[in-house]
């Protein structure tokens, strides 16, 4: 009973939040709703007794959405509404509707044909943190390491792109020096 109430509460909240993300013209509303929606999703993990995944969802998306805010801060005046360029509303509704239906078909068809099985079901006496570790470092070791290498590559390329003037500090310079360099 309590689980059902919690599920529907979280479901309604999540959908409402993501509707705001798509519909709102204010970047600040959209991003705050995105952050809230991501956190409400973690509620489903907690309901399924997957505590570890729930907490990881919270931690990962706190940092990720926070980085989005930083971009919004740089590119928009977040207290004003953004003017969107829509050639036609019909196109937007048609495309988004089609992709929504596709997604629903992809996720519902295995449920209807009852071909969803747990390949690695939870064992007794093993906590969910441990069982994730066991699966991640035995069955899925190669994808895990490949993902790690991809992240490393992304990080190094980010550092290389940002590090052109890393050895000098802009904060320590006097304003005049910076202006001189800009003139050059």
């Amino acid at each position: 009973m309590i689980e059902a109430i919690a599920f529907y509460t979280f479901a309604i909240l999540t959908i409402a939040m993501f509707v705001i993300v798509v519909m709102s013209r204010n970047a600040l509303y959209s991003m705050s709703a995105l952050a809230a929606g991501m956190i409400f999703i973690s509620g489903f993990f907690f309901l399924l007794d997957a505590d570890f995944l729930g907490v990881v969802q919270i931690i990962v998306y706190t940092g990720a959405v926070m980085a989005l805010y930083a971009f919004a801060m740089m590119f928009f005046d977040t207290t004003k509404e953004v003017k969107e360029k829509n050639s036609s509303n019909y196109k937007v509704f048609l495309l988004s509707g089609l992709s929504a239906i596709l997604l629903i078909i992809i996720f519902v068809s295995p449920i209807i044909s009852q071909k969803v099985q747990a390949l690695y079901p939870m064992k007794e006496n093993i906590g969910n943190t441990q069982s994730i570790g066991i699966v991640l470092f035995t069955k899925y070791l190669v994808p895990f390491e490949v993902a790690a290498i991809m992240l490393l590559v992304a990080m190094i390329s980010g550092i290389v792109m940002a590090s052109k003037r890393m050895d000098e500090s802009l904060t320590l310079k006097v304003d005049e020096e910076i202006q001189k360099e800009e003139v050059k």
Partner: peptide, 25 residues
């Protein structure tokens, strides 16, 4: 909960959204 430590650290990090939203709004 059996991931208590992670939970506390994660939820405290969400607290930083307060200053962020306050500043931007």
């Amino acid at each position: 909960i059996n991931v208590g430590l992670l939970y506390v650290v994660g939820v405290m990090a969400i607290g930083m959204y307060g200053p962020l939203l306050a500043g931007m709004a």
